[in-house]
Write a protein that binds this DNA or RNA. Structure first.
Length: 139
DNA sequence: GCCAACGTTGGC
DNA sequence: GCCAACGTTGGC
């Protein structure tokens, strides 16, 4: 079971908007980057990911779950781009800020720290556990 | 709002 | 196939 991290600017698509979609979820569209797309292709139904607010907020605010595996992105005719559907699972009791992640030596290897521009990233089991602990939220 | 870092494009 | 120019992302 792999873990992931999804980034979104809260002004465009934030946690509240995701929650409003309920269990039906919503497609994670608009990704136009091969690495991010490949990560989505690798996702399996039921896998979980962090929901991160980029640009303003800069913190992990909740947990989402993949509720549909990769399919064509309906926001473009370009068949190179695919997306998964995700639904909100639960919010973080305590959001985990980028600052806190950077400050934790155990999280030095995170993609979020080393390749901040990648919008859909893998998260290791250990990183998942540590961040859930920091957020006082069950994994 | 700025700008560094990164990815993509396209001329050669 | 190289690399300069350009566009975009995201932390600050």
């Amino acid at each position: 079971m792999a873990y992931w991290l999804f980034k979104s600017e809260p002004d465009v698509w934030g946690w509240d908007a995701q929650v409003a979609k309920g269990d039906a979820g919503e497609q994670w569209d608009g990704v136009r980057n091969y690495q991010a797309r490949n990560n989505m292709r690798a996702m399996k139904l039921g896998e979980k990911g962090f929901f991160y607010h980029s640009r303003s907020g800069l913190e992990i605010v909740g947990i989402v779950e993949v509720c549909a595996e990769a399919h064509p992105d309906s926001t473009t005719d370009d068949d190179r781009w695919e997306c998964v559907d995700v639904k909100a699972v639960r919010p973080f009791a305590k959001p985990v800020t980028l600052e806190a992640i950077k400050a934790d030596p155990r999280l030095k290897g995170m993609v979020l720290v080393n390749n901040s521009r990648l919008s859909v990233q893998p998260v290791s089991d250990t990183e998942w556990q540590i961040i859930c602990d920091l957020g006082e939220t069950k994994p």
